[in-house]
Nucleic acid binder design. Structure first.
Lengths: 228, 228
DNA sequence: CCTCACATGAAAGTAATACTATCAACCACA
DNA sequence: TGTGGTTGATAGTATTACTTTCATGTGAGG
């Protein structure tokens, strides 16, 4: 231990880079666990400080507020996912196969990957599923976007959309398709766990079922029957 | 004026039915405008009371907190949408055409319908787009679901999934498909407005483009090319 | 060995939020 | 002429979301 790969996110998300200090790294690791446990609305810097045996003031030196911290965690996740995708598909020439591999990574993403860091990735993925959209579904979305706070997500979508374009250059909505599929991968997992009537049961395990559902969605959209 | 159709939602969403009093109805109408203007996180009952020339205490007599109020607004919207769908498709025999009509309603839903109430529907739809998922993406999701707070949404999805099953009885994921399409209709509109690199531009107007994208998605999934 | 920057801890303070409680005024209706 | 129920007015509490100030420790450079 350990090469723990360095993931970089937009520096405007933080006041001080949490990766550079012990306190910062503890802050990230503990916040993942705490947000997972109590949810973003109940999460406060005071509670985090208590659990970490630190102080509110110290934590505010790293992040402006809990929404920026969330943005950091989520961006880190998207950057990590993008790395995973590149790593596992870089030597796969066929676009269709690459797309299937990506889909597999997207739907298996909540599994703990032992190759990485001291982070609780299963908890982080639950945070991504439950909280990530709150990072951009705000009144300040345009300012935050201007500041580039969502670029990691955009890069991810752009990368995968590129594969779609390679596979089906004539398809008109590659970005919409991929953003829909990425969001659906999370939402369907959430629904399966908490609102099962919004998904469908089957013999397959949840993960497998979501994979098959998204596979049909993705490739069905790319190879239409005979759209009038 | 006016027949203003009566939409009922789960009574556990409120403490006192806001439809039954003048103050309650004003609360709904004004909250829609205020949440639209400042966003849910900045919205407080104090601010709403000030704008309405009422008091915090009075408003707390109707709703436990702002999340329940949000749940009410959103549920009201889903119930209203379901009514719209029934109204416009009740005498259409062909399932495929019915599905297309539903898709049209889903993607045109932000347009003001003059037949209804004193509500600012365009503002309500913006709230649905930006805030609705915050009603269920919480730590309390299971309790709230137990209490039936999301049933309007489930009914809507179940209704539309029923049409899908009629059209393609063999398709394995009708609920997942419809929940994905309904969520995507909102998300893609939000992206088009605020994060355009997550969608695709085209000659079509936004609304039209989202319709075509979702049409391809929906019917592509139902008529797969040759799924192995 | 000194000191100087810098990170953290400790403590306190402020404004706003998220409620709850009490009581008086009013209005509807019996 | 009561009487129950709705609202308004006022006040109060606990928590949240920060900011400020100052003391302390630590490590890097001279």
């Amino acid at each position: 231990m350990s090469a723990s790969l360095r993931i970089e996110v937009n520096c405007k998300l933080y006041l001080r880079d949490p990766q550079e200090t012990e306190l910062g790294r503890r802050m990230i690791a503990e916040s993942v666990r705490l947000i997972d446990e109590i949810g973003l609305e109940h999460f406060t810097f005071r509670k985090l400080a208590q659990r970490m045996q630190s102080t509110e003031a110290s934590l505010y030196r790293y992040f402006e507020n809990k929404y920026r911290l969330l943005g950091y965690l989520v961006s880190w996740y998207w950057a990590w996912l993008r790395f995973q995708i590149r790593f596992h598909t870089h030597n796969v020439p066929a676009a269709a196969l690459r797309l299937r591999l990506i889909l597999g990574i997207l739907t298996r993403a909540h599994r703990d990957d032992p190759t990485t860091t001291e982070l609780d990735e299963a908890a982080l993925y639950r945070i991504v599923v439950r909280e990530s959209s709150k990072a951009y579904l705000t009144h300040e979305v345009d300012e935050d976007n201007q500041a580039g706070l969502f670029r990691e997500y955009k890069y991810l979508v752009a990368d995968i959309a590129g594969v779609v374009q390679e596979l089906s250059p004539a398809y008109a909505y590659p970005h919409a398709l991929i953003s829909t599929v990425v969001e659906a991968a999370q939402k369907q997992l959430f629904f399966a766990r908490h609102l099962p009537s919004l998904t469908d049961t089957s013999a397959d395990a949840t993960e497998q079922r979501i994979y098959r559902f998204l596979e049909g969605l993705l490739f069905g959209a790319l190879h239409p029957p005979e759209s009038a």
